[in-house]
Computed example of a mutant assay.
Amino acid sequence: MSGAEVAGLIAAIAFLIIACAIALIAIRIGGVTREIKDTVAEVNKSLDAINAEVGPLTHEVEALLTKSNTLLNDVNGKVAAIDPVFTAIGELGESVSDLNTSTRNLASKVTNGAKESGKVAVAAKVSKKALSLLKKKPADQEAVTNGK
């Protein structure tokens, strides 16, 4: 064998190795491609099932949102109707507070004036006498009224 024949034989073997490597790579790529194809088919089936379920769910969510908006509008209307009641209650509280203050002031003035003039003792005696008359039996009251 000459040098050219050996070189040709080496080139042929190298070409065969390269062809085998390319064939192996092609076979593996074909397997991966089949798996990807199967995965894409499963994904499409899953998406179809999800899309079939999303449609009715979307309609129910829209109906729920509509009902929620109606309920919220109703509550807002009722709160607006109740606002004057709370305002009136607040004003009533202020009026009661003012009345309490006025009553305290009046009681203070009456007490101070009565202490100075000694009328408190007289008023206490009169009120005790009136209470004792009210507590007596009706027959006793007639006797008191008639002067007995």
Rank of each mutant, 00 (worst) to 15 (best):
A41E: 10
A41T: 12
A41Y: 10
A41M: 05
A41F: 08
A41K: 05
E42R: 07
E42A: 06
E42Q: 05
E42L: 11
E42I: 10
V43M: 09
N44P: 03
K45A: 14
S46D: 09
L47D: 05
L47S: 10
L47Y: 00
D48P: 03
A49H: 01
I50D: 06
N51I: 04
N51K: 05
A52C: 12
A52L: 05
V54C: 10
G55K: 14
G55P: 05
G55F: 13
G55Y: 09
G55C: 05
P56A: 15
P56M: 14
L57M: 11
L57G: 11
T58P: 13
T58L: 12
T58N: 15
T58I: 13
H59D: 15
E60K: 09
E60S: 11
V61T: 14
V61I: 14
V61Y: 10
V61C: 04
E62P: 08
A63L: 08
L64I: 08
L64P: 06
L65V: 06
L65E: 11
L65W: 09
T66H: 11
K67M: 13
K67D: 14
S68L: 12
S68G: 08
S68E: 12
T70C: 03
T70Q: 15
L71W: 05
L72K: 13
L72F: 09
L72W: 14
N73C: 04
N73I: 06
N73Q: 05
D74Q: 01
D74E: 15
D74Y: 09
V75D: 02
V75K: 02
N76Y: 11
N76S: 08
N76F: 06
N76A: 14
K78S: 09
K78F: 01
K78T: 13
V79D: 02
V79C: 03
V79R: 08
V79K: 13
A80N: 02
A81Q: 13
A81F: 00
A81I: 03
A81H: 04
A81N: 14
I82F: 02
I82G: 05
D83F: 06
D83V: 11
D83L: 10
D83N: 10
D83E: 15
P84W: 03
P84L: 00
P84N: 00
P84V: 05
V85W: 00
V85Q: 00
F86P: 00
F86C: 04
F86W: 03
F86G: 09
T87K: 00
T87I: 04
T87F: 00
A88Y: 01
I89F: 00
I89K: 00
G90K: 09
G90D: 02
G90Y: 03
